[in-house]
């Protein structure tokens, strides 16, 4: 699927540019993009390294286990294939909590570690397990309570009430999360 999307973006983009005689833009784009990617990687490298460090303290001190204990009743219902004492549940709950608070860059390392743990209990290493799918659709449905970046940008562009969008944003994000869990549940039951 990722291969299809990747090819689609590149092929459609280049062919359309050829048809329009805009190839010079694409030429420039190809040359500049590698730099943009490096900038992006360098921009989040410190945050990820810092947060995995902080997270490791929480993990070693047993905080992560406590946190996952708190979310366990809900999580074990959503992830029936993951053993109840598995580390993945702790990472998943930390990832979801960080996302809820709008700490997107802090959530990513938790999420990546959750995937590593889920991969350990995956029968077919090449194929996504049901738990991975549930986790990803829940993650991408974006349960954000505090959209920090949007509020900051609204403030920057002179909004009189930058936080007024929180209520509709939270409600729509909840609808999309409920939709994700529901659709996932029905597909799972059919298989």
């Amino acid at each position: 699927m990722v291969s299809i999307l990747w090819a689609f973006l590149i092929v459609i983009g280049i062919i359309y540019a050829f048809l329009n005689g805009n190839v010079s833009i694409i030429n420039e784009s190809i040359l500049v993009n590698a730099n943009k990617a490096l900038e992006l990687i360098i921009s989040f490298l410190p945050t990820i390294v810092l947060w995995t460090g902080i997270m490791k303290i929480a993990e070693d001190a047993g905080l992560l286990t406590k946190f996952s204990n708190f979310l366990r009743p809900v999580l074990s219902k959503l992830f029936p294939s993951v053993p109840k004492d598995n580390k993945a549940l702790g990472y998943i709950s930390s990832n979801i909590a960080a996302n809820m608070l709008g700490l997107g860059s802090a959530a990513t390392p938790f999420g990546l570690k959750a995937m590593i743990e889920l991969q350990k209990i995956n029968d077919n290493k090449n194929r996504a397990s049901q738990a991975m799918i549930t986790f990803l659709v829940l993650n991408t449905a974006g349960v954000t309570i505090i959209p920090t970046l949007i509020i900051a940008l609204r403030l920057g562009y002179g909004s009189k009430n930058p936080t007024e969008i929180i209520a509709p944003a939270v409600l729509s994000t909840m609808c999309s999360s409920i939709a994700a869990i529901t659709i996932d549940y029905f597909i799972r039951r059919k298989k």
Binding site: L5, G111, L112, L118, A128, I150
Partner: peptide
């Protein structure tokens, strides 16, 4: 901007990090 996350990007990133290529119905549900 606040109601959802970058679904395609996150799916590509997370599956890519553990080298899973068969993503099944993830993208559809997402």
């Amino acid at each position: 901007q606040g109601c959802t996350d970058t679904t395609i990007y996150v799916i590509a990133l997370y599956y890519g990090s553990i080298k899973v290529s068969k993503t099944r119905y993830t993208v559809f549900v997402g």
